[in-house]
Design a protein around this nucleic acid. Structure first.
Lengths: 209, 209
DNA sequence: GTCTATAGGTAGATAGAC
DNA sequence: GTCTATCTACCTATAGAC
């Protein structure tokens, strides 16, 4: 596990404990993340989550009032984590390209909780019709955060001449799409298939001058 | 709609009519593709498909024996389409890089049935636990096709000096991951957001010499 | 605190009407 | 051919036992 993804996981857990103070709730959520990400919202039965957490089916309802309720909290956490990861990278020492390099290294790490976020965000936003209204609302609100931190980095990098002078928004969209695609490949195939280096992934960003 | 994606769609429809000879079956499948890709396997109700196709819920069972049955046929078609698209590109005139350029143009086109395939493959393979055993078997069998046609193109391109001299398998995996990530972004956001040019996407493939 | 039992609702699949 | 009615099974959520 890379230093980068460890740092992001630490950040995530910090935020996790702040957003979900109760330990029992956290235990269920940790297990539910795993199940949801494998089966999706509709495909996940409360029994699956309960069994994985070592509880009876009915007991889950002492902590959450519905399946949607659990899902919304996880979805919110995932989006927070996505925003925070870019924010954290943007606050590091170094040039913009170095920061993005660091972030990419974290994302590409085969371990790390951050991978699960991306997967969930992807999976659920794709099947977005089925997700609760509340989750859609949260999504609208928070999906822009990663871009808020990424865009200034790209623009600064362009001014420094280390990032190619294309439209910054297009570059951001391309970056997150690429990362998401690689994340999906990772979760589908495990960590034993060949994977691109950070340098290869960031070719499209680097200035050719 | 680009010439490239039109060509792939024509190929797809050809294969579609060969694999599903009955017109009624095809009508249901065309509608089911759309619903499955929006809601996933578990989230799709037979009623949704029936309504979209303009039938009653029960009528669907005159054509297919179960929901899984419909899904398996679509999944198979999607994987066939994925393999055929790369095969088709590899048989075009031109240098390997030109062929991959053509293929990428087809994939990035906002319209075109091919986009739906990718989305479905992605979505369902990601939530793979929930899909029927038969679909998993088909997946194992056909998922390698795109690589079979992509790898020789990359190797030839490397020999010609137009493609960077990195491990061909890594480059292939990176390519399909990238395309998949962009496809997801497309279906999530529609065609009105900025999107990278083919040149930008293929930066990581181009020889720097 | 945690489980078991169950009520109530939903959806897949079938069968019989028109 | 196509629809309506229904049977059955499963799942969510609750309520009450220990």
């Amino acid at each position: 596990m890379s230093i980068q993804s460890e740092a992001l996981d630490r950040k995530f857990i910090e935020n996790f404990e702040k957003m979900i103070p109760d330990k029992g709730n956290r235990q269920i959520i940790m297990n539910a993340i795993e199940v949801f990400s494998r089966k999706g919202l509709a495909g996940t039965k409360i029994k699956d989550i309960a069994e994985k957490a070592g509880f009876s089916q009915g007991f889950v309802y002492n902590y959450f009032k519905s399946k949607d309720d659990i899902f919304i909290k996880i979805f919110d956490l995932a989006l927070e984590g996505a925003g925070n990861s870019v924010k954290y990278a943007s606050e590091l020492e170094g040039t913009p390209y170095q920061k993005i390099y660091w972030l990419t290294e974290a994302y590409l790490s085969p371990e790390g909780i951050s991978m699960h976020h991306w997967r969930l965000i992807m999976l659920q936003a794709t099947t977005s019709e089925g997700i609760p209204e509340e989750a859609k609302r949260i999504s609208k609100e928070k999906i822009k955060k990663p871009f808020e931190y990424m865009l200034p980095m790209i623009i600064e990098g362009q001014n420094l001449g280390e990032i190619v002078k294309e439209d910054p928004l297009t570059l951001s969209i391309t970056y997150f799409s690429f990362i998401q695609g690689l994340g999906i490949t990772r979760v589908q195939n495990g960590k034993d298939i060949p994977f691109p280096s950070v340098d290869m992934v960031l070719s499209f960003l680097r200035s050719k001058a």
